[in-house]
Design a protein around this nucleic acid. Structure first.
Length: 541
RNA sequence: GUCCCCGUCGUCUAGCCUGGCCUAGGACAUCGCCCUUUCACGGCGGUAACACGGGUUCAAAUCCCGUCGGGGACGCCA
């Protein structure tokens, strides 16, 4: 895609800047989606940048996981290119340059105080700390001398403490009623004001010379000419610091839009550590969510088109999206807390199928029960599944069926698909909804299931015997089957339902299944007769 | 602790800015009925919310103040 954006251009440039310290979770995914939607709706550009300045915690596995998640979403991005990203770790010189520019203006200073040893780490309740005593007042000469002598220091931002500090204060810094304050306007949360006395002298460079997140982020956003920063609300208070950095470095701060947080049912924000794979994007993928359904679901958390529309395509979402539709209160992703710990029960699936699935039986695959997912996400996914053309749905189902160890050809799958389309919420449900189409031998079932409603064992035997005769000669097409079986029911003096039930159980191995005639049609005469034959051998009581 | 943000059915939300049309609308979930060869889909209906307390006003979910509750940020992490 050609670089056609000028700095004065009205076209927005947004970015998604995850830090690779874990898998991509649903909260980050939503941030990505909102940025993408904003860019697409306004004909702007979307940039991907890895904020990887934390060498301690970054892992390649995280990078891979993030890409895996984004790839599944299939939305893509514009810069630096598809499957490419900016890496903060490769732009450190730019960050340093920005820091020293601020320093030269006298808006940052060297702090030679040794780094915190980490004893008061957990408390997080320092509250009133603003700067280390003595560090701020150090003369430039003294500062230069100690630095030249090789003393370690952190570079700190000199947050304005008195009116005269900034010679010509930018509009973001105001003085009123004896108090200095920092201002910015958030597209979602409105006018934001914070007293400078409540902002500590945060670090720009660490004593090892590495930039901090605040510095790197702002320097990059300015350099990449980001016009709108759309991110989680957990950054709302940090934004005052960012505004200060932008102004001190001589940049115009971009527009900000903070998103309400996605929280767990207990109200706390989603955490990779606490909630684990339950909040991972790949978990949704593996369970059989359609990317567009997942996107649709996430969009509805914290944003509304305000017209009661819920089931929306990507195109509709793009057309409808606007920052004005974002609300301010946190949204709960309604998974069951119990799902967090019940994620290693794959044998249950095989058992339900009554068949050993080579891969699954190993017990290595994780299985997430339905409660892992928000009911609304499940419903939306089912809606999207029903909205898919049969060919496409079938093509998506095929690899799942094969992956579970069954062999089906595409043609048969295409005939099965319409029969289960309205009966599955997740793509993986194909394994439990259509299993009897795939196996040669039906798993054992309770013979009592063969007994029809308001009937007895004798009726089941009678029905099965007659069905066998009828099905031996009738054409295996919906209408002829329908007529023949109904006629047989009448002959036997049983209700249609009482006729169909034993047959259904005999061929499907259970009571709940797709419509009978369509099922028989796909199964074919041979399999049908074999299964009914087997049923008649059972001891029905 | 300090600062910031938020508070409408169980959940996601509309309404709030520009008070009256709100005896608060929709969706999911849940319950019941209908359709029906089972299940599902679909249709119809039910239960269910303006956190609380004061103001302002003829009139407040909507405006103001307070209380309580929840969340977030306060690091040489991001």
């Amino acid at each position: 895609m050609p670089e056609a954006i000028h700095s004065k251009s009205p076209q927005p440039r947004v970015r998604f800047a995850p830090s690779p310290t874990g898998f991509l979770h649903v909260g980050s995914a939503r941030t990505f989606i909102f940025n993408w939607l904003y860019a697409r709706h306004n004909g702007g550009a979307m940039i991907l940048r890895l904020d990887d300045t934390d060498v301690e915690r970054n892992t390649q596995a995280s990078v891979d996981s993030i890409f895996e998640g984004l790839k599944w979403l299939s939305l893509g991005w514009d810069k630096p290119g598809w499957d490419e990203e900016y890496k903060q770790s490769e732009r450190i010189e730019l960050h340093r340059k920005t820091a020293w520019t601020i320093f030269e203006k006298g808006l940052a200073y060297r702090d030679f105080t040794p780094a915190h040893t980490g004893d008061s780490e957990k408390s997080g309740a320092q509250g009133t700390w603003l700067f280390n005593p003595g560090a701020r007042e150090l003369s430039r000469e003294e500062s230069d001398r100690r630095a030249a002598a090789g003393e370690l220091f952190a570079l700190r931002f000199r947050v304005p403490r008195e009116e005269t500090m900034w010679g010509q204060p930018p509009s973001a810094v105001r003085f009123a009623e004896g108090k200095l304050s920092v201002h910015f306007k958030d597209a979602v949360y409105g006018e934001q004001i914070k007293a400078a006395a409540d902002i500590e002298d945060f670090a720009l460079l660490r004593s090892d010379g590495m930039p901090t997140y605040h510095l790197a982020s702002c320097a990059d956003d300015a350099d990449l000419r980001i016009s709108h920063i759309i991110r989680g609300q957990d950054h709302l208070t940090n934004t005052f610091k960012h505004v200060l950095i932008f102004e001190a470095a001589g940049f115009t701060p971009p527009q900000f839009a903070h998103l309400p947080l996605l929280v767990a049912p207990d109200g706390t924000k989603l955490s990779k550590r606490r909630h684990g794979p339950v909040v991972s994007v790949t978990t949704y993928r593996d369970a059989g969510f359609l990317p567009d359904a997942f996107i649709n679901f996430l969009c509805l958390l914290g944003w509304s088109p305000k017209n009661d529309r819920e089931n929306m395509s990507l195109k509709e979402l793009t057309d409808a999206f606007s920052l004005e539709g974002i609300n301010r209160s946190n949204a709960v992703v309604n998974f069951k807390e119990s799902a967090i710990s019940t994620n290693v029960v794959i044998p249950a699936l095989s058992a339900a199928q009554g068949r050993a699935c080579p891969e699954l039986a190993e017990g290595n695959l994780l299985f997430y029960p339905e409660e892992t997912f928000d009911p609304k996400a499940l419903w939306l996914n089912a809606e999207h599944i029903r909205g898919l053309p049969v060919e496409e749905l079938s093509a998506r189902l095929l690899p799942i069926v094969r992956g579970a160890g069954f062999s089906v050809d595409a043609e048969k799958m295409l005939r099965i698909t319409p029969l289960i389309r309205e009966r599955i919420k997740l793509l993986r449900d194909v394994l439990t909804a259509a299993d009897f189409f795939f196996v040669d031998q039906l798993p054992p079932y309770d013979p009592a299931e063969l007994i029809p409603q308001k009937g007895d064992a004798a009726m089941a035997v009678k029905v099965l015997a007659r069905a066998r005769e009828v099905l031996a000669s009738v054409e295996f097409k919906h209408d002829p089957l329908d007529q023949a079986l109904r006629a047989a029911a009448q002959e036997l003096g049983v209700k249609a339902g009482q006729m169909f039930q034993p047959i259904r159980v005999a061929v499907c191995g259970r009571k709940n299944a797709p419509p009978l005639f369509e099922t028989l049609e796909v199964l074919g005469r041979e399999t049908t007769l074999a299964r009914i034959g087997q049923a008649t051998q059972l001891n029905i009581t």
